[in-house]
Design a protein around this nucleic acid. Sequence first.
DNA 1: TGCAACATACCGACTGACTGGTATGTATAT
DNA 2: ATATACATACCAGTCAGTCGGTATGTTGCA
Lengths: 212, 212
Amino acid sequence: MPRPTKQSPERGNARTRLLEAARDVIRAKGFAATSVDDLCRAADVTKGAFFHHFESKEALGVAAAEFWTKEVTPFFAAAPYHQPAEALDRVLAYVAFRKAIIAGEIHEFTCLVGTMAQEVHASAPDIRDACGRSIFGHAATLEADIEQARRDHGITTTAWAAESLARHTQAVLQGGFVLAKAGNDPDLARESLDHLDRYIRHLFHVAEERAA
Amino acid sequence: MPRPTKQSPERGNARTRLLEAARDVIRAKGFAATSVDDLCRAADVTKGAFFHHFESKEALGVAAAEFWTKEVTPFFAAAPYHQPAEALDRVLAYVAFRKAIIAGEIHEFTCLVGTMAQEVHASAPDIRDACGRSIFGHAATLEADIEQARRDHGITTTAWAAESLARHTQAVLQGGFVLAKAGNDPDLARESLDHLDRYIRHLFHVAEERAA
DNA sequence: TGCAACATACCGACTGACTGGTATGTATAT
DNA sequence: ATATACATACCAGTCAGTCGGTATGTTGCA
């Protein structure tokens, strides 16, 4: 929709710059504490540009969640955890990959949509739902491999379903992020992924030494 | 410190009323989106009273986290999950208890300090640290039972420590809350606790049918 | 016992900075 | 000519925080 502009063609259009700023600033400060002016400053655009592209701050929140989805979907689709031939190995490689990309500052590796959902769940249902679609949509990308792993390993229990385990991986991730923030230590997020890895191996009756 | 007052002795003093209001309003709206006036209105006190008791909004945030700790500590200390004779049963009963108290509206059963920590982790270190003390202090109350269960069941692995598993229970809880908010469905929090229960049983090599 | 001196607990009008949002104007591409 | 993509100035409301004041209880001394 937006055309390239001559004012700052090297940095993309104002809409994209605002969404990138939202992704970065909101993860650090939260949605409510991030003002429209903060975003304009970070994106180096004026307020007129902001309200040209977004009808309201809440509309930007929805767009930011959708932008996040559009960024992470190809990122995970291209990630190396899909390579193992066996489905369970792909699931374990996913967990290992999520652990590996926990690096740098906390606001850099944590999840925009988890942060926003927790903050606005009651006051901005549109943003909350966009965040929900992002999280559960991502969880759904794990289901096929989990289902295949169940078949491969002859798992027939109805105690847990692939869909449920997929969601649980996201809960552990989000919870790890909360603890990492509360303790100001990224290792706290990694630690819970180690437990998740061990849990999944238990579910499929494989030893911990098996390579992911 | 505060003495009883004649102006409104029936509702407790202004400080306590403000902390109760903070506990309830911040869980629903988030810290940044909750204004001092919101809290004064909810607590039925004036702004003068607010700033008489709290030097700043941030100071209230710290006090609210500490108030939360002081409320939940006796609540969990008196809970029935301590009754089983065997340590592992107490740990499993804790998970079952956390699942059982997920009831009512989302903002009623979710965790104040998890919510606040996620929101202010970078902008208000004092609040973040108070939240961290609350979460990790609560986690620590589980360590003795987990350690005892390890001994009872002859678990000698160094792959996971009692301290780490205790923290992981909190991560699963916090992550479950995030998913419940994003999906606007408390069942999403309960679901992850079922996985946690199954994980712990796996770790101690006990069947799922064992009563908690 | 009485009373001055003080401390605590609150009240609510006020301030200046900042908020999300708007109105209007202009440059550029088609 | 018209639509898009901005820019600038501005607005009314809200924000955290301040300040002078009052009501009520406590302390210590005569």
